[in-house]
Structure formats: structure tokens, C-alpha cells
Amino acid sequence: MVTNWLAARHALRSLGSKLDRPEREGHVTDPAIAICAHDLTTGYRQGSHVRVVHRGLELVLPRGKLTALLGPNGAGKSTLMRTLSGLQPALSGTVWVDGVPLRALSPQAIARRIAVVLTDRVDVGYMTAYALAALGRHPYTRWDGRLTPEDEQIVQEAMYAAGCAGLAARMVAELSDGERQRVMIARALAQQTPIIFLDEPTAFLDLPRRVEIMYLLRNLAHQTGRALLLSTHDLELALRFADLLWLMGGDGTFVTGTPTELLQRGELLRVFSAEGQEVRHYLQDLHQRWQATDLLRTPQ
């Protein structure tokens, strides 16, 4: 559905039609859509120097689904996530969050709509996992950061939901990478936002932990109706678990669709077409096997 819309949008745009405006507005207010962006250009501006990472992005992030952002290193995945979450300004174009333009929202208002789990190392000396998760209540607490019993209840439920309530009394510095990632997810849940972005949440984790986290994220998206967007390098896990893929090529291309669609159309291969021959051969081999097997049968 999303791809159809994008295709239609593209056709209209190439015709230079002004009809695209009402069409887009329709998406902006569609309650099933958490974020949409139109003609979005991401990149960095430092003084007069402008470095464009992506130009003219059209995208839609639906609620209740796990969306995975895939692409080679340096393709601009983190830049896109930072732009969509308001951590850095877009060079041009518009992002709507819940039908409201992102740039019209105050930092506090954004914090009540979008929570993030970043790759930044969390390096706090003397803090329990519970206190760390409780920092997610920041956008709701009064000036001195005091937590009400309701706040504490929300944090505790978030920790149960993320499967880390048992770690509550442990010091963050003593947690393993996988445990810390769960606590950071609990922190994002405690922020009670309809949208959560996760930047490479499975990096540094072993396979069992990666699978656990992907199950957790997919269940959270489906059961709580949140829109979850994660970036990852783990193609196979993304294909198996994500409801939608955003594929970012190293050459600035951007395609979206369900894993099945993209796999059948060979888009996954195209994303890495700029890579060297060894990489392409390896991926072609992998791709053929994935297409041949029942890879995309939803894991139970």
C-alpha cells in the first residue's frame, strides 16, 4: 500500500501536477500514519558549507508496525533518523509527526511524541537500571524532576514490558550490552511516545540477544500500536522480523516496501550494487538462497 502510494506520488510529481498536494495532506492526517515526510533533504550545514546526504525523500512510517532501515555504512541512516526525530534540522522539506510539522513542535513536544534509543554509549557511574529507565519520564516531570507514584508505576510497567524488571536494582555499569539495551528500550517506553526510533539496537549483541530484541520490538509494535523504526545491518533478521523495510543505497537511492516485495524485486541486491565484486557475489548467493527458501515465513 505504501509503495503504491509512493509510486503514485512519484508519477504525479514527474507530471508536475499540483494534484499531489491534497493526496499528501490525506496522508498527513491519516491516523494510521505516525510520521510522513515530503521532499525531505537531509544533510549537514556548517556555516556556508552544505553537505547533502539525501535529496527529495518521500516516506511514511505507519503505526503498529516494525519498520527496518537498511543500507550500507555511510548511506545516511543515522542522519535520516536524527532528522526525523528533530535532533538535527532538515536542509529542506517537511516532516509531519502526528499530522503536525516537526519544526512547529517544541523540544518538549517532540519528546512526548518520539523516543530514541541511540548508539551513544551510556556511561553513568552510580545509577541503577531503574533510575536510568526513570529518566524517560523527563518530559513529564516538574522542574525538579520529582517522580510521582504514577510516574514510578509507568516506569515499572515499561521495565516489565521490556523484560528487564529483574535488573531494576542492578548498577548500569555492571549490565551486559544486551541487558543495557533492554533498559534503554524500557526508558524509551517509559517516555510513552507513539513513535520510537532505535539506531542499531542489535549492534554488539550475540545472536540469541539479537533475536530476543527483535522479538521484543516486533511485539511492542504490534501490541502497543507504536510506530517503531530501527536501523540495522542485520539483513536476515530485518527480513524476518520487520513489517516494512526502508532501503537506502550508498548512491542516494531510497526504496520502501514489505520484505517479500523487495526481496522478489531484487531491491536488496541493488542497494549494495555499488559494492565491490566479492561483496556482490556473496550477496547474490545469499539472495538466491533467501528467495529459494521459506525465509519470510513469520517466526512464531
Binding site: P107, I110, A115, L118, L135, H138, P139, W143, Q191
Partner: peptide, 23 residues
């Protein structure tokens, strides 16, 4: 005493602080 709340958020680094609404 008034800046304890943003300081707590800054414990996680500036990116996280920004993401929970700290200017």
C-alpha cells in the same frame, strides 16, 4: 538546585538529553 533536572538528562549525553526535550 534548579538545574538538577537537565543535569540528570545530561548524564546520558547531549543527544539523549535533547531527545527528552532538554534545550
Amino acid at each position: 538546585l534548579v538545574t538538577v533536572k537537565p543535569l540528570n538528562a545530561l548524564l546520558l549525553g547531549e543527544n539523549y538529553a535533547r531527545s527528552v526535550g532538554v534545550n
